[in-house]
């Protein structure tokens, strides 16, 4: 019960202390030194037994010391950060960024080289294909022309042979036809000779010619 009451109590004097402390700070702003010195000596005595009659954050007696050591420590921090720590981290980050950029650029260059190689390969392939096609077409045309020429030659050769053969046949035929009369006369003469006796060849020939009409 005692301690709980203490906790309640602790709140109330705090509020009061706050007000007095605010007054003290206001006073300090207006007439510089005297109240500071007063509170300083006043609080100093009480600190040792852990009690204070001024709310500590508003105790102007502690201000000079805090300001001095804040200035010293913050200045030291600023110097350490700006001269030592931050440049080091910054250079590490920059170095990393530079490495990444260089690697990316190298990779990009490699990719472009690969693309160029692929493009030139495809171009060469297309050229070779076109060339092959043209060669094939050329040789086909040549073969066809050769074939046509040979066929034409063979056809004319055959045609002359056929016409020669036909001429010979016709010749033979006329010759044969010419011999037919003689054979007919001879045959008729022989037949008539067997039956009737000797007949003059001229009369037989005339008779044959008459029959033949």
């Amino acid at each position: 019960m005692v301690t709980q009451a203490y906790a309640q109590e602790a709140e109330t004097p705090t509020e009061e202390n706050l007000d007095t402390a605010i007054d003290a700070t206001h006073g300090e702003g207006v007439d510089a030194h005297d109240p500071t010195a007063d509170t300083h000596t006043g609080t100093e005595a009480h600190y040792d037994d852990g009690h204070s009659d001024v709310f500590p954050p508003f105790d102007p007696a502690t201000f000079p010391s805090q300001l001095l050591w804040l200035a010293i420590s913050f200045a030291a921090l600023y110097l350490l950060m700006s001269k030592v720590a931050l440049p080091k981290v910054g250079s590490t980050l920059e170095k990393r960024q530079a490495t990444i950029d260089a690697d990316l650029a190298a990779a990009d260059a490699d990719r472009q080289k690969t693309d160029a190689a692929i493009a030139s390969y495809e171009k060469a392939l297309a050229e070779a294909k076109a060339k092959a096609q043209s060669i094939a077409a050329q040789s086909r045309d040549a073969i066809q022309a050769d074939l046509a020429q040979k066929r034409g030659a063979a056809e004319t050769d055959l045609a002359t042979k056929v016409s020669a053969a036909e001429a010979r046949i016709a010749e033979t035929k006329t010759a044969a036809l010419a011999h037919v009369d003689e054979i007919a006369v001879e045959t008729a003469q022989a037949v008539v000779g067997q039956i009737v006796g000797t007949v003059s060849p001229d009369s037989v020939r005339a008779a044959v010619a008459k029959v033949k009409g």
Partner: peptide
Amino acid sequence: TALNLSFTNSALFMVVTVAVLTGFMVLSA
């Protein structure tokens, strides 16, 4: 004209703060 510029517990923790932050940044880098 009394001026108390003593090295206090507050000053100690300011120095500790600076030391911790500097130590962290320098060691990590």
